[in-house]
Design a protein around this nucleic acid. Structure first.
Length: 289
DNA sequence: GGAAATGATTGTCT
DNA sequence: AGACAATCATTTCC
């Protein structure tokens, strides 16, 4: 899942970041750093220098050589750090962009993240961690288009609104969300629909009409809405004006007004009491009995 | 600002 | 493993 994945990435950055160098870089201007290096070198070679005090020029050359060597290493390390820091920053930005599909992320938030990374990496990890833990339940509603697609599928497969893995993947692609989100959506939809069918009547009718128009526009000779792929049409038609919340009553009405034909279309044996186990109404029957 | 809607999470069941 | 049910946390609507 995204937050966990992100945390893993943070704790395993692409390149180990040399914290000590970062601290030096920020706290001291370049000149002060060079001075520091000079002093360190003087201290480390102090003993030898005293022992060879009679050969001052040789010692000086040796010192200069060492100094430039260390400077080279230092700058190489500094470059490495900057590169790692930039890589890490772009890495975080990419992850944020990915996450922006799941929850709203403003450009300000991204800027803040970047400034945090450039402060102190250790501190940054802690801040970022808490921020992501806080944000783990933040969400964004699906786009209208995505909801349309999902509802269209749901209401045109009302007899068996259980898309298989293949269909889920296809829907996920179409809607620009994950398969897990598709599963969540159908889980929520089934349960909420079943809990209060009356509330969803209007919506069901809307999508039924959509199916009618799309089907009739596809086949000009179709005079009846009961074409193989228009299951929702019949279902919603018989819901119109129905205020019954009780599933059993609803089922009776469905049987009376043609829901049976939809069940048959889905290769479900006649009579709701022998409907396959994947039918939501069957499950309710079992629970009620 | 509060209610309703909605996506996600968690625990339980089969 | 997948479905359901309850619930949480956020967003949207009035």
């Amino acid at each position: 899942k995204q937050p966990a994945f992100f945390l893993f990435e943070i704790f395993h950055p692409p390149e180990p970041v040399p914290l000590s160098i970062q601290g030096v870089q920020q706290e001291d201007p370049p000149d002060a750093q060079i001075m520091q290096l000079d002093n360190m070198l003087l201290c480390s070679s102090g003993g030898r220098s005293r022992r060879n005090s009679d050969d001052g020029s040789l010692e000086h050359v040796d010192y200069k050589e060492k100094l430039s060597q260390i400077r080279e290493i230092y700058h190489a390390e500094l470059d490495k750090y900057e590169q790692a820091c930039n890589e890490f920053t772009s890495h975080v930005i990419n992850l944020l962009r990915e996450q922006s599909r799941m929850r709203p992320i403003s450009s300000k938030e991204i800027e803040r993240m970047v400034s945090i990374i450039h402060r102190n990496t250790c501190e940054a990890v802690m801040i970022l961690r808490s921020m992501f833990l806080d944000a783990r339940r933040k969400r964004r509603n699906f786009s209208k288009q995505a909801t349309e697609i999902l509802n269209e599928y749901f209401y045109s497969h009302l007899a068996n609104p259980y898309p298989n893995e293949e269909v889920k993947e296809e829907l996920a692609k179409k809607c620009g969300i994950t398969v897990a989100q598709i599963a969540n959506w159908f889980g929520n939809k089934r349960i909420r629909y079943k809990k209060n069918i009356a509330k969803f009547q209007e919506e069901a009718n809307v999508y039924a009409m959509k199916t009618v128009t799309s089907v009739s526009s596809l086949s000009s000779q179709a005079t009846s809405p009961a074409t193989p792929n228009s299951g929702g049409v019949m279902v919603c038609g018989c819901f119109a004006g129905d205020t019954v919340g009780d599933l059993f009553k609803t089922e009776d009405r469905l049987n009376q007004h043609g829901y049976q034909s939809i069940l048959q279309q889905h290769a479900i044996p006649s009579g709701l009491h022998s409907v396959g186990p994947s039918c939501i109404f069957q499950q309710d029957n079992l629970q009620a009995v």
